[in-house]
Amino acid sequence: MIDLKGVNKTYYGGAALHVLKGIDLHIAQGEMVSIMGASGSGKSTLLNILGILDTYDTGEYYLNNLLIRNLSETKAAELRNKMIGFIFQSFNLINFKNAVENVALPLYYQGISRRKRNNIALEYLDRMGLKDWAHHLPSELSGGQKQRVAIARALIAKPQIILADEPTGALDSKTSEEVIQILREVNKEGMTMIIVTHEHSVANATDKIIRLKDGVIESIEVQEGCLI
């Protein structure tokens, strides 16, 4: 599903900062992987490259056998829309849109009619147990509810992979557990999932823990029979 070969990334802002130094990584379909590392280790950069939100300098990145390189903004947007679902630490819901509209947004960019996409969004909210909150604004939802809306939004376009950047970073431990539970369930249905986290409880719930240090992969730890 995901193949990285010798991916390098350097930021040129003032002093050149070599963030990723030759990343080789293979993630198979249906895997649930966590990426850990100290801040500055390059884990967010790696996630942004995987999510086609950022570019890399050298190496190769295949997503579903498609080489992701030198894409125009428009093409990148199209790929993100169809292949990748994002979950963010700060939820990143649009504050003047209610839950259904937020969830339906990726389908708007696929040109699906309003009625149809809102119906689909409602189904996904129902799966997240949020049907009764469908017409609430993000400001009227709790942190856990917001993240569940965000998960529904990540899923609605039926992407190839879900990329989650500290999905539980803004949540208390009980809600965190619920969110991890949901992610796990989604993964069980066959969705490939990559989670950047610094919380061991989250990492322990995944199949594989990839540890980054100073831009290189320090270790890949496979957790046999991981189930919560």
């Binding site: 999510g51 939100l53 903004e73 428009t74 947007a77 199209e78 993100r80 829309n81 169809k82 994002f86 990143n92 819901l93 649009i94 504050n95 947004l105 990726p106 960019y109 696929q110 939004r153 376009a157």
Partner: peptide
């Protein structure tokens, strides 16, 4: 700006 960032992450093209 933030909203546009979110929209872009969700697949909004710059032209849209």
């Amino acid at each position: 700006t933030r909203e546009f960032g979110i929209r872009k992450a969700l697949g909004a093209k710059p032209s849209s």
